[in-house]
C-alpha cells in the first residue's frame, strides 16, 4: 500500500532543546497509528510537523508525496486546508458561534459554506439535535464530536488527533472512538492519534512509543 506519510531523519529542536531526534516513520494509506509516550517526549511536536503547523529543523517529511519542508507559507496553508483535519485536546471551537456555524467556518476557509452539508456532517456525529447550540452549552464529548465534524467536513486524507479524548470520561471516549472508526471505515482516511490511554490505543492498527524525542518501541495492535 502507498505511504501517506514518509519521514526520514526528521528533527525539530527549540534552541538547544531537541524535541524530536532524527525520526524515520512510514504510515501506509488508511492506517490508524497511535503515538504514546510520556509528557514532553515530543508527541505534539511530531503531530504539528505532520499537520504542517510547524516546520522541521532537519530531515524530510513527505505527506501524500509532497515535501512539506519545501512548501511556502501559502502552500502549507493550502496543504492544511485540503489534506488534513486536526482534533486537539482543547476543542478550539469559536465560543460565540453555534455548532453548525463552527463547522461552516471550516467550509468557508476551504471553499464556500454549504449549510446542508454541514448539517449532515453534524448529524453523522450524532449531533443533529444540537445544531444551534454554542460550544459552552455542549458537554465535553459533544464538543469533541463537533470538532470531529469540523475536521472531516473537507474530506481530509489524514486526520490528526492530539489527545482528543484527554478530557473525556470513559463513556464519551468510547463514543468518540466508535465514531472515528465508523468514519474511517466509510471515508478511508488515515489517522495519527496521540494518547496516554492504553484503551484508546487499542482502537488503532499500530502503536509507536516515544521517549525523549526518540521512537523507542513499536507494536501492532492487530493485523491490517
Amino acid at each position: 500500500m502507498a505511504a501517506i506519510i514518509e519521514t526520514s531523519g526528521l528533527t525539530r529542536s527549540y534552541g538547544d532543546i531537541c524535541a524530536l531526534k532524527p525520526l524515520d516513520l512510514c504510515v501506509p494509506e488508511g492506517e490508524w497509528l497511535t503515538v504514546m509516550g510520556h509528557s514532553g517526549s515530543g508527541k505534539s511536536t511530531l503531530l504539528n510537523l505532520l499537520g504542517g503547523l510547524d516546520r522541521p529543523s532537519g530531515g524530510s517529511i513527505h505527506v501524500r508525496g509532497t515535501d512539506l519542508a519545501t512548501l511556502s507559507e501559502d502552500g502549507l496553508a493550502r496543504f492544511r486546508r485540503d489534506c488534513v483535519g486536526i482534533i486537539f485536546q482543547q476543542h478550539h471551537l469559536i465560543p460565540y458561534l453555534t455548532a453548525l456555524e463552527n463547522v461552516m467556518m471550516s467550509q468557508y476557509f476551504h471553499s464556500v459554506p454549504d449549510e446542508a452539508e454541514a448539517r449532515h456532517a453534524l448529524e453523522r456525529v450524532g449531533l443533529g439535535h444540537r445544531l444551534k447550540n454554542r460550544p459552552g452549552e455542549l458537554s465535553g464529548g459533544e464538543q469533541q464530536r463537533v470538532c470531529i465534524a469540523r475536521a472531516i467536513i473537507n474530506s481530509p486524507r489524514l486526520l490528526l488527533g492530539d489527545e482528543p479524548t484527554g478530557n473525556l470520561d470513559h463513556k464519551s471516549t468510547t463514543m468518540v472512538m466508535e465514531l472515528l472508526r465508523e468514519l474511517r471505515d466509510e471515508e478511508r482516511f488515515s489517522i495519527v492519534m496521540v494518547t496516554h490511554n492504553q484503551e484508546v490505543a487499542a482502537w488503532g492498527d499500530r502503536t509507536i512509543h516515544m521517549d525523549d524525542g526518540c521512537l523507542v518501541r513499536e507494536e501492532r495492535t492487530k493485523s491490517c
Binding site: 485540503d82 467550509q107 476551504h110 471553499s111 464556500v112 454549504d114 452539508e117 467536513i153 473537507n154 474530506s155
Partner: peptide
C-alpha cells in the same frame, strides 16, 4: 462535498 465546494469556489 468538499470537492464539489472546491469546484464551486
Amino acid at each position: 462535498g468538499a470537492a464539489r465546494r472546491k469546484l464551486l469556489a
